[in-house]
Every structure is written in C-alpha cells, then in structure tokens.
C-alpha cells in the first residue's frame, strides 16, 4: 500500500477492472451530466488506493469526468467518508453520537484505545489499524456500534470490542453484526409484542 511509504503517489490510474466499473457508473447519468458520477468514482479510487484518496487519484477522477480539479477537491474534502490521508488496513470507526454514547460508546472507545494503543486520528505503527471517531452511522437501534472496513459491529461492550480487534490483529475475520446474540435489530430482551401466532389468512411468517 502506497500509504505505508509515507509519500503520496505521484500518479494514479484506474485498473482495467475499475475502469470498467467507472464506465458503468458514468453510464447511469445523462450525457453531459457525467460530473454526477464524481462520488462513486472517488469511492472507487479510494478503494483502489488502499482506503484513502491521494491528490493524484482526485485529479484522475477529475480528468475522467471533465471536471475542474478544485470542484473534485471540494467534494472529497466535504464528506468524511473520503480519507485524505493514508489509513491502516483496518479503519476502525467508532460512533460516539447520542444513541451510542447513551448505550456506552465511551466503554468501546476506551477499549479500542487500550487494545490498539492509539488515539483518535492515529494509525498503529504496523499500519494495521487507524482509529477514528465518527458521527451517526445509522445503526442506533443496535448501539453502541463501530464500523471496520465494510462491516458494522453492533451491540458492543468492552470485551466484545477487544475480542473483535484481537481477531483482526491475529489475521482472522470477526463475525459482523450484533455481538450480543440477538438477530438483526430485534428487541434486545426477546420479543415483547406480536409474540403469539397471527390468526387467519394473514399468516406468513412461520417462526414469529
């Protein structure tokens, strides 16, 4: 990964696979409106360069959709999901917004600090983890939560957090989703309503 060398890459070009994907994205928009594709293309570029967007990548995207580079910089700097500095292999993003905080995100944050030995905005020396504080990721019903890579880890507490991070440290793949044993976003202590079998012809779900 280019980020590990500490020097931003001077050049960037989509791989042939990503070029095809980019073409498909641009084709979704009417002719002359190809600039609308800027955000998916930036995301594609971010994936290709290891989770962050070097200036060269933004310029490459600007060139593809015929947009002045400054307009692309504006978009990339506006959204927090574009990383403008290199990140570790696993980007640990912990939500500390109201719902998560009420449900104990402080505990999760402390656990990350302790397990990884870094603070918000820092990367571990081995380049494995970057630790970020983020705003609401829309999983309040399973708060507290964090996102690592493409996966959400929900219903966290200090031990669950430590466990997930340790699995990642060991090169394994932790189980995504709620860690407390419930399925999806069902009520945490089991069903409280609609517990009996529905009557009549409306019956659809067999396991309610």
């Amino acid at each position: 990964m280019s980020g590990e060398t500490g020097m931003p890459p001077a050049d960037f070009a989509f791989t042939s696979k990503n070029k095809k994907l980019a073409k498909a994205v641009i084709a979704k928009y009417p002719k002359g409106r190809q600039a609308s594709a800027v955000m998916p293309l930036l995301f594609l570029a971010q994936r290709q360069s290891g989770g962050w967007l070097p200036t060269a990548a933004m310029e490459h995207v600007a060139g593809i959709i015929d947009m002045p580079p400054i307009r692309v910089y504006e978009v990339a700097t506006f959204y927090s999901m574009y990383n403008l500095r290199p990140v570790g292999k696993h980007h640990v993003q912990v939500c500390t917004n109201l719902s998560c905080w009420l449900r104990g995100s402080d505990e999760v944050v402390d656990s990350c600090r302790k397990t990884l030995g870094i603070d918000f905005g820092e990367t571990t020396e081995d380049g494995l983890f970057t630790f970020s504080e983020v705003e609401c990721l829309g999983a309040c019903v399973n708060a507290p939560m964090m996102q690592i890579g493409d996966n959400y880890f929900e219903d966290l507490d200090a031990t669950a957090t430590e466990g997930i991070l340790n699995v990642l440290k060991g090169g394994g793949t932790p189980k995504p989703g709620p860690q407390g044993g419930r399925r999806g976003c069902e009520p945490a202590g089991g069903l409280t309503t609609l517990t009996e079998k529905p009557e009549g012809q409306g019956e659809r779900s067999g396991d309610a």
Binding site: T55, P68, I70, Y73, E74, T77, F78
Partner: peptide, 19 residues
Amino acid sequence: VQELGATGRGENMEVGTYV
C-alpha cells in the same frame, strides 16, 4: 478560471486552491 474553491465543511471550511 476554476481554481478557487471551498474545501472542508462546517468549522473546517476553507477557501483556497487545495493544492
């Protein structure tokens, strides 16, 4: 000449050329 823009947002918004 499209070289100036507003980068960042909220309190971190800055007017400049980025590079």
